[in-house]
């Protein structure tokens, strides 16, 4: 099957539409997560969601919905305790997500037989994406567009200099809850693409590449989105033609492109 024929296949069109929307969402939100140095939070939320997925598979009831509940609760838990405990936040995240990931494994062990759907949650299955998955992604896409339109300056200030942002009258704690809950929702809808284990890459790699290339903040989100889109499309097509897992291929493409960007930025600095 050549590229033209492939583009007429419904499963490939759904993968491309879904991939484009997820790439835009994760690349734009990832800018704030990366600059706030919170990639470990998104990694923790992604791993913790396995408990919800496993419970859904065991009960045969909406694994993604239950994963989202676990992820949002984890986001609220982390945000609440971040400034209210003497335990270092990375330790707190490490303890809680390890616990929930282990709980997920125990629950999986309770349900008998081979569970193919579990592999799609762990490693992604973009070619199996459905129109309802795309509809949910579009809704989240519009939430992010609206949030960025109204909160962009406050998010930027709170990310750049949180203490000065508070003094400027910004409710930095409410913004942090909002950002972390939105991150957890985005992680769950992105699991379909690359899976629980690799989802953080979609948030972190494009934004970090953009940080190396941007000459000012206003360039960060556009560069991150372009990087995310290019990686996503190359990854989807490459995985089809060379017959590799799509999620892992997208992340490998992102890694290779990031290496190129890193070398370019080093050359430019010299």
């Amino acid at each position: 099957m050549d590229l033209i024929e492939l583009l007429q296949e419904p499963f490939m069109l759904r993968a491309i539409y879904g991939g484009i929307i997820i790439a835009i969402i994760t690349s734009s939100l990832g800018v704030f997560i990366t600059l706030k140095k919170q990639s470990y939070i998104s990694d923790g939320i992604a791993h913790a969601s396995l408990a919800g997925i496993a419970a859904g598979i065991l009960l045969s009831f909406q694994p993604i919905l239950l994963a989202m509940v676990v992820a949002v609760l984890m986001a609220i838990f982390i945000t609440y305790f971040r400034k209210r405990t003497s335990i270092a936040i990375d330790s707190l995240i490490g303890i809680s997500y390890s616990f929930l990931f282990a709980l997920g494994i125990l629950i999986i062990n309770l349900s008998p037989g081979f569970k193919p759907e579990l592999f799609s949650f762990l490693f992604g299955s973009i070619l199996g994406i459905t129109w309802s998955d795309i509809t949910i992604s579009v809704i989240v896409f519009f939430i992010i567009i609206v949030a960025l339109k109204f909160l962009y300056k406050k998010l930027l200030y709170a990310t750049f200099d949180p203490e000065a942002a508070y003094i400027r009258g910004i409710n930095t704690e409410a913004l942090e809850y909002f950002l972390n809950i939105l991150t957890s929702v985005v992680i769950i809808i992105s699991i379909k693409i690359v899976g629980v284990i690799l989802v953080t890459a979609l948030l972190v790699i494009p934004a970090t590449a953009a940080k190396l290339l941007a000459q000012k903040f206003s360039q960060m989100i556009p560069i991150s989105i372009i990087f995310g889109l290019i990686s996503m499309l190359i990854g989807i097509f490459a995985s089809y033609f060379i017959d590799t897992p799509p999620g892992a291929t997208v992340v490998i493409v992102e890694g290779i492109l990031f290496l190129l960007v890193f070398l370019i930025s080093k050359l430019r600095a010299n």
């Binding site: 600059l35 300056k153 750049f160 400027r168 941007a214 000459q215 000012k216 903040f217 206003s218």
Partner: peptide, 17 residues
């Protein structure tokens, strides 16, 4: 290493204040 210019830093303060 935050990717922001001086103009953006001051403009942000002006906009929010």
């Amino acid at each position: 290493d935050f990717p922001i210019t001086v103009e953006e830093i001051i403009q942000l303060e002006c906009n929010l204040a």
